[in-house]
Design a protein around this nucleic acid. Structure first.
Length: 415
RNA sequence: CGGGGUAUGGCUCAAUUGGCUAGAGCACCUGGUUUGGGACCAGGGGAUUGUGGGUUCAAGUCCCACUACCCCGACCA
């Protein structure tokens, strides 16, 4: 991609209302553009990052047997009356012309439960799990912090259906492992995302949150350093010890919730009378679990965790491009020619490259933009580097740069 | 939903006690110069000052209402 043709340029000044780091850098870098409070447009750079996050999540969900579907954003009021959740304050409600009401789904239990019910009748159809990646709508009293708390936001939600509690428990534990693999691939290790015990609702003792340690987080968790797990505020109010080792030595820490899983048990199958028939011809309620993770919030979280004063430092797996190629050449000079040639070579090698081909921008402007956008590897061509028949190679997360031979650029990028 | 703050070209800001044709920087367009950390010269386009009322000879400026946005808190199956 040529930077000169990219839709969504960087800007030197940032809107005064972009206070949080993720809103500031993502807006300034041309990744997103705010529509209204808590609602964002994703521009080409931003969509690339979001898609990469979704791809990783999708692969792991498929890996644990989830089947991807797509449910509607809009659902008739009746389903919410069935579960008694029509009174949730965060529900966006709208009138249907000709009568009736519809809701913009804040989560999809009201959709997925009757959907699966209409296609699964026998114990032979279970267990199974479906998931989708789709936008959710929540009428938050206060949207805040850029992508961290929105009114419309991207969400992966998986729902699992089981014959009994034991099978639910087994799948639930697999989901925990799967979530940690996702965070790991996103660049967040076990010291950065902590399994956190939260209140379980009426049918199970605990639910679990995945909390990314960050000063800007709106949650406070209480960390047991011995077990590397935490409890949230609700739990600490009930009993102030680690649920695993019962230690009382808990350290408070601010964190961003980047995942949340629940054992729903029969909360929804009961409401919709979702029974299956077992071997003996007896009807039993289906056991359910749900597993949420928000790609857009994850994206904001990554910016909050991986940045410096100049801009974003994307983890390799989610960076919008692999390489940021900068030419400091003039129109029709040898530097420009060499950069064009290198750009073609990189594309031929299927390396995803953003080529800053602007002829009328200063070196400083290009270098600062590269730091702001945060692509992991920067390759720069100038008179100086060409004098050595080379290119400058610099990683975004390192201070130093080095000159490498023009013929070895590809292997340096891959190495 | 309670408290605090803000609203002026696309963006960041200015405009004296209420007083002349609402200024500047960035961005954008034209021409020229320039290229290793946000260059320069010349010219140019772009605003009914968030919305609606009110006071006044005169309102960006004062008053009232509303709306939007940001921050703190509450809320967050």
């Amino acid at each position: 991609m040529r930077y000169s043709q990219l839709f969504g340029k960087t800007s030197k000044s940032v809107p005064a209302d972009a206070e949080s780091v993720n809103a500031k850098f993502l807006t300034q870098g041309g990744f997103v553009s705010k529509q209204m409070a808590g609602v964002y447009n994703f521009l080409p750079l931003g969509l690339r990052v979001l898609s990469k996050i979704q791809k990783i999540i999708r692969e792991e969900m498929n890996d644990m047997g989830g089947q991807e579907i797509l449910m509607p954003a809009l659902t008739q009021e009746e389903s919410y009356l069935t579960t008694g959740r029509e009174s949730m304050e965060i529900l966006f409600k709208t009138e249907i012309v000709g009568g009736g009401k519809a809701m913009l789904n804040p989560t999809h239990e009201e959709v997925v439960t009757p959907l699966v019910q209409s296609h699964a009748f026998s114990y032979r159809d279970l267990p199974m799990a479906v998931y989708q990646i789709q936008n959710k709508f929540r009428n938050e009293p206060r949207a805040k912090s850029g992508l961290l708390r929105g009114r419309e936001f991207n969400m992966k939600d998986m729902y699992s259906f089981h014959l009994d509690e034991a099978d639910l428990n087994k799948f639930y534990d697999q989901a925990i492992a799967s979530y940690f693999r996702i965070y790991e691939r996103l660049g967040l290790g076990k010291s950065q995302v902590v399994l956190t015990y939260a209140s379980g609702g009426s049918f199970s003792r605990y639910s679990h949150e995945f909390q990314a340690i960050s000063e800007v987080g709106e949650d406070t968790i209480f960390l047991c350093k011995k077990c590397n797990i935490a409890v949230n505020k609700e739990i600490i109010d009930e009993h102030n010890f680690c649920p695993s080792c019962e230690s009382v030595d808990l350290t408070p820490s601010k964190a961003i919730e980047v995942g949340n899983i629940f054992k729903l048990r029969t909360r929804f199958s009961e409401a919709f009378k979702f029974n299956y028939q077992d071997k003996d011809g007896k009807n039993n309620l289906v056991e359910m679990g749900c597993y949420g993770m928000g790609p857009s919030r994850v994206m904001g979280t990554l910016v909050e965790i991986f940045h410096d004063e100049k801009g974003i430092i994307w983890p390799t797996a989610v960076a919008p491009f692999d390489v940021h190629l900068i030419s400091l050449g003039k129109e029709n000079d040898e530097v420009t020619a060499a950069a064009e040639k290198l750009y073609s070579t990189l594309k031929e090698q299927e390396i995803d490259v953003l080529f800053d081909d602007r002829g009328n921008s200063s070196a400083g402007e290009k270098l600062n933009d590269a730091d702001l956008i945060g692509i992991p590897v920067r390759i720069l061509l100038s008179k100086k580097t060409l004098a050595q028949n080379g290119a400058e190679f610099k990683r975004r997360n390192e201070k130093s740069s080095k000159i490498i031979a023009l013929g070895e650029v590809v292997q340096n990028i891959r190495g």
